[in-house]
Structures are given as C-alpha cells and as structure tokens.
Design a protein around this nucleic acid. Structure first.
Lengths: 195, 195
DNA sequence: GTCTATATTTTGATAGAC
DNA sequence: GTCTATCAAAATATAGAC
C-alpha cells in the first residue's frame, strides 16, 4: 500500500507522540500499529523489538538536540551580544511551548538512563555538549570584548540551567513570565558587583 | 509476625526505593512483596490496588515537599540575608545529593500528572507553593531593607529555577560546581545595572 | 511487506483456608 | 494478617501463509 520508507517514518512519528502522551510502558505496539494503520507484527519488519524502536527514537532525538546546540556566531558583535543572547533564549522558550511532546519524552529517557548504561553515557554526552555550547559562546563573547571574563563558566552554566528548567515548568502548565525570567538572568551577567 | 504498622511502613519504604530505581511499571507487586518478606496478596490487605499505593506514596512526598517550603524567617536580618539565602541553596544541594531516589520518583509523578488530572492539580499546588515560598522570602527581604524592590518576583523565580534544576542535572551524574552556580545566581540579585 | 493465528510470559487482582 | 492457588487480561514476540 505504502512504500517502505513512508511506513517506517509513520511508525516513528506515531511512536513519538504516543510514547510522549502515554509513556513507554502504557503504549503497546498494538496501539502504534492501529494508529499507523498496519498490524502489530508489521512493526517487527522494521524494528526487531519494542526496545529497539525506543532506542532508535532516542538517537533521533539526540541528533536533533545536538543540531540545536550549534550557535551561529557569524552575526554576533560586541554591541549586539546581549541582544543575541536574549534572542537565543526567547527562541528556545517558543520552541518548548510549541513542541509539547519533547519534554515529556525526554524526561522518560532521563529515567531510562538511570537504569541503562547505554542511555546514560549518551545522555551525558548530550548534557556536556549542551553546557559546552553556552560556555563556548561566552568565551567567544569575552574574546570580542562583549563581556568581562569573570566567572565565565559559572555564568554560562547558570543561564543554561535557567533555560533548561523552563521546559520542565511548562510540563505542569505553569504560567510564568518565562521570557522575563530569562531577561533577568541574561542581564545579571552584565551587572557589576556593588558590595 | 510483624505488627500492622510496621509492615505498612516497610511496604512504603520498599516501594519508594524500587519505584525510584526501576520505575512504576517495571516494579511489580511481587517484587515489592519479596523485598518486604511477605506474599503478593498480603499487600492487598494494606492497599486496594497498585495505583492506590502509588497515589499514597505521592501524597507522602507532597507533604514532605510542603514542609520543606517553609523557611525560617526568625534569624534573618538586613545584614545576613544574602548569607542565609546562600545557606538555603547549599542545604538544598546537599539534600538532593544525599537522596538519590527523590528526583527519580518525582520525575515519574510529573509524567503521570500529564495523563492524570488528579496528580496534575496536586502538582500544580506544590509548584505554586514552591515558587511562592521564594517570592514571600524576597518580599520579606525587601521589607527589612535587605534588597531593593526591583523585579522581586522575577528574581525569586529565577533563583527557584536554578536550584530546582540542579536536581535534574544530578540525575545524570553531571559533576558541576553547583554551589558556585547558586552563589553566582544569588549574588546577581545584589548587583546594580551598569549599562 | 503485511497479514492471521498463536505461543509465552507476566502482571494485577481475587477466592478462600488458616 | 498472611498464605496458597488461581483467574483474567494484556503484552511482546514468533510462525507461517499470501
């Protein structure tokens, strides 16, 4: 009926949504199959097991995150760095508001990781890369004279923690002034110690 | 063999650890029963279902959190407020480092909440109370003249987000200078805008 | 590639004796 | 209160036809 690649992708998309909404364990292969419009055994033509499907989806998500960790330095200057940093956060907030499934499914992989070495090591890579992307950005900002060089790594990690946790707070539908919080965090980097 | 209350508590303690380590779905009542030293049906004398056990544990954890949300204002003064705020964070970091199970199990309830209204409303209560405890503390600090009154709520929420996310980063064993990050966040509140 | 039919296992939950 | 025995449901996975 459909071609191979089309069905393959449909399985992935459906699994992504169902896993996020209902969780890995409460999502059976029958449910995925029905939603895709195939029978349960047909899934085994594409994936050798449910675990393999979960693992494949994980790697796809990891690659997505890694792509998002690459900041564009080309249009960053000494005068517009603060503005660009604000934009990066605002964009991340908008994205997290748009894709409600991402944080739900990612949290499940975090829990899986605490029981499975394979997921843990990959997740540590992702997390280190995420933190490094902010640290590198700040180092560049120091180089071009956009910020002073005191406590650069700590400041970068603080900002990374703020933006990362916004997604978790969104999970409960908590209506906060997230962009205001981000603005406060960003501007604090440019403030001078007064006592 | 044991008395009623003793067995009841043993079930709760065992469930807490197993649920955290293996997850709700991968922890069967048989496993809990074996670990406690009773048979599976004996659990049904104390809880009418597995779901009830999970729900009971949730309420216990919620009460624990709410107790932790009450800050002691008695020894806070204009001069030692920054120091006290640092202490609050350091203590929270130490606690999260000690109880490795808490964040794992709490994350699972976050996911449960997105599929179950009952958990969601309770979790929203907890989250609102958590944020309010920081906001109230800051309002008190303004009253006694320990900080200026600009952007009080946003600053309080920013600090709450930082300390809250430290627990999530610990889940992957990420070794960061958490206390340094907290110190940076706290001190930023006292800095003046320079441009 | 996709189907029907089925094997296997595990789990939550109940019945009823002691 | 706790046990043994058992049920019923659901899930992963496979066999084999088309």
């Amino acid at each position: 009926m459909r071609n191979k690649e089309e069905t393959f992708n449909k399985i992935l998309e459906t699994a992504y949504i169902l896993f996020a909404d209902k969780g890995f364990d409460k999502t059976s292969l029958s449910m995925i199959a029905t939603e895709v419009g195939i029978s349960k055994p047909a899934i085994y033509y594409y994936f050798t097991s449910k675990d393999e499907l979960i693992a494949y989806l994980f790697e796809e998500i990891c690659k997505d995150i890694e792509r998002g960790n690459i900041f564009d330095y080309s249009d960053i200057s000494r005068t517009n760095f603060q503005h660009k940093l604000l934009e990066i956060g605002y964009q991340s907030i908008d994205e997290q508001e748009t894709d409600v499934h991402f944080n739900k499914i990612f949290n499940q992989y975090m829990l899986l990781a605490s029981r499975d070495e394979k997921y843990m090591t990959r997740l540590q890579d992702i997390q280190a890369g995420y933190l490094k992307s902010y640290h590198d950005l700040f180092n560049y900002a120091v180089e071009i004279g956009a910020i002073s060089d005191t406590n650069i790594e700590t400041k970068a990690h603080m900002l990374a923690m703020v933006i990362d946790n916004i997604g978790n707070f969104m999970l409960t539908g908590c209506r906060l002034d997230y962009k205001g919080i981000w603005k406060e965090a960003v501007e604090s980097v440019w403030r001078e110690q007064s006592r």
